[in-house]
């Protein structure tokens, strides 16, 4: 039970601190990593929702009591998202590299996209 509210609090903390990082960021690459932190908050939340006390991993290769396992649906949600997240961050990094090339700066406040 305690783990549940602890995980909820950690999820909120990661989301807010990541958003703070994005708002105050002075570097687009730093911003991408802050976005990774924000995404991690959803993982913490989903993990806590899918877990239950005393549960075991939903691998039934030598586990016969199927009602002991934790929720596989939520794990499947996170699994694909983690890999996709990495490619999306790669796309954002590529945009950052391109912005640096076009405008000569990585500071989001000084990037003037209209002149890029």
């Amino acid at each position: 039970m305690t783990y549940f509210y602890a995980a909820m609090a950690v999820a909120a903390w990661l989301f807010l601190v990541g958003a703070y990082g994005i708002v105050t960021s002075r570097n687009l690459i730093h911003l991408c990593l802050c976005l990774v932190v924000v995404q991690a908050s959803t993982y913490v939340l989903l993990t806590a929702v899918g877990y239950r006390p005393g549960g075991v991993a939903p691998i039934f290769i030598d586990l016969k009591e199927t009602d002991k396992a934790v929720d596989p649906v939520i794990q499947a949600l996170m699994l694909t998202d983690i890999v996709v997240e990495a490619t999306v961050v790669a796309l954002l990094l590529a945009i950052a590299v391109q912005i640096k090339k076009k405008t000569g700066t990585l500071d989001p406040d000084r990037v003037d996209l209209m002149h890029g």
Binding site: Y43, G50, Y51, A57, M78, I82
Partner: peptide
């Protein structure tokens, strides 16, 4: 490590390689 402790080995493996 958190995924591993919370009984999600599939996700842990994925996060390990990516992160």
């Amino acid at each position: 490590l958190m995924f591993f402790i919370f009984q999600a080995p599939d996700v842990a493996l994925s996060q390990l390689v990516i992160g």
